[in-house]
Computed example of a mutant assay.
Amino acid sequence: MSLWRLLLTTACALHAVPRVHSCEELPVFSPSPLVVKRGDFATATCSICNNSCDYELRLEEAYQSSFKRGNQMVWNISSLRLPWSVNILCYIFDSDCPTVSLDVIVYKPPENVSVSFKNRSGSSLESPSGPLKEGQVYCLQCEVEAVAPAQNMKVTFYRDFRELLVMRSSKTEKHPVSESFCLDYRVSREDHGATFWCEARLELGPQGPQPPPVVRSHNITAVVHYAPYSEGPEEPQLLTVNQGQSAELVCRAEGNPPPLYSWSLPSGSDYRGPVLTIPSASSQHEGPYTCTASNALGAVNRSFTLTVHVNYVPIIIAVVIVLVLLTIAVVLLMVYRLYYKQHCMGKYNISDKFRLHHHQPIPTTV
């Protein structure tokens, strides 16, 4: 029995109150438990018998007590602050019946909730979002600051809007505490650009606020570094083009940091870039080509074999045309020699044009 209860019992002994020997009914607090936010108004009622009996109840808390003859008493406080552990008692005066205590839950939502990626050793990265290396396991850490009571808190991790894991605190302190929760997370290239966050939810039961208080962290967008990869076939690609046509060899790869490209060409020359274009293919461009896409985490190769097909049809047509033209020319020359000179010119002698003709003298008359 507390000191205040002993003093009150002694002080009230002068009242002629019959001693209660039967404990068939006990005082009841309502609401119970009493859930109140730190600094808010709080009230609870202790009653017995539903107003059908006449007991003298006592209401007791630390450093103050009150008593009233009757079967109902009200406890209230305008602003619930210190202490965090509240002990309110209600009992029937001058009886051997058990004392009933009011279950008070004083809660305080977290001051702050933050999320970040850390190395499993606990060391920090360049930023909360990374960079992270594909295939490695990191601690996705959710830090909750100054929350009470921690044992009623549920921490949930999210990737985008998909729930990853739910964790609970093992701390039983009534006063505010800070706590860190670590989710071991293996990073993949699909996580690059994904949004991660966490939230702390105080689940205080049906007597608590509805919906439960939730404090959510900011979002972080994961930065994942991974080696280049290509979705194309692994075996060499066979490319065939006609002579004179353009050829395009595509060697695009995905990677972070973005990969650099280098080519091995049949000519032995150097080229850098994801796409190699040959404007006019010829036999000198035939052969194997190898492209390498690389960054600091690895490299991937793509192989090509280029064949330049010579189209002989235009050449044959050109040769036929030339032969036809030559044939026509020969025929025309023969016609000229055999026909034109003999029939059109006849027996022609240029000396006849210059031969002097002798004319008969003109007779004269006597």
Rank of each mutant, 00 (worst) to 15 (best):
M1T: 07
S2D: 12
T9D: 14
T10N: 03
A13S: 15
L14G: 09
H15W: 13
H15N: 13
V17L: 14
P18I: 00
H21F: 11
S22G: 06
F29V: 03
F29P: 07
F29Q: 04
S30T: 14
G39C: 01
G39Y: 02
A42Q: 06
S47M: 01
C49T: 11
C49P: 01
N50W: 04
N51A: 12
D54W: 08
Y55D: 07
E56M: 12
L57G: 04
L57C: 04
R58Q: 08
K68N: 06
G70F: 06
M73I: 15
W75F: 15
N76W: 10
L80A: 13
R81N: 11
V86E: 11
N87M: 06
I88Q: 05
C90I: 08
I92P: 03
D96K: 13
C97T: 02
P109Q: 07
P109T: 08
E111P: 00
E111L: 10
N112S: 13
V113F: 04
S114D: 10
V115C: 11
V115G: 02
R120G: 00
S129Q: 15
P131M: 06
L132N: 09
Q136I: 08
C139H: 15
C139L: 05
E143V: 03
A146N: 14
A146W: 09
V147Y: 03
A148G: 06
A150W: 03
N152I: 00
M153H: 01
V155E: 06
T156F: 00
E163V: 12
L165P: 00
K174M: 09
P176I: 06
L183T: 02
L183K: 10
E190V: 07
H192I: 01
H192A: 10
A194E: 12
T195E: 09
E199S: 10
L202I: 10
L204M: 05
L204W: 12
G205C: 07
G205L: 08
Q210K: 14
P213D: 09
V214N: 02
N219M: 03
Y226P: 02
P228Q: 07
E234Y: 05
Q237I: 12
L239H: 13
Q243D: 08
L249N: 03
L249W: 08
V250H: 13
E254Q: 15
S262C: 01
W263H: 06
S264A: 10
S269P: 00
Y271H: 12
G273L: 04
P274M: 05
P279Q: 11
A281N: 05
S282L: 00
S283E: 12
S283F: 03
H285Q: 13
E286G: 04
P288W: 07
Y289I: 05
T290Y: 00
T292P: 01
T292Q: 12
T292R: 15
N301E: 14
S303M: 07
T305Y: 15
V313Y: 14
P314S: 05
I317S: 06
I317E: 10
I317M: 11
V320E: 06
V322H: 05
V322L: 15
A329W: 10
A329N: 08
R337P: 00
R337I: 06
Q342C: 01
H343S: 05
K347Y: 09
I350T: 09
F354L: 10
Q360M: 08
I362V: 15
I362C: 12
P363N: 09
V366E: 13
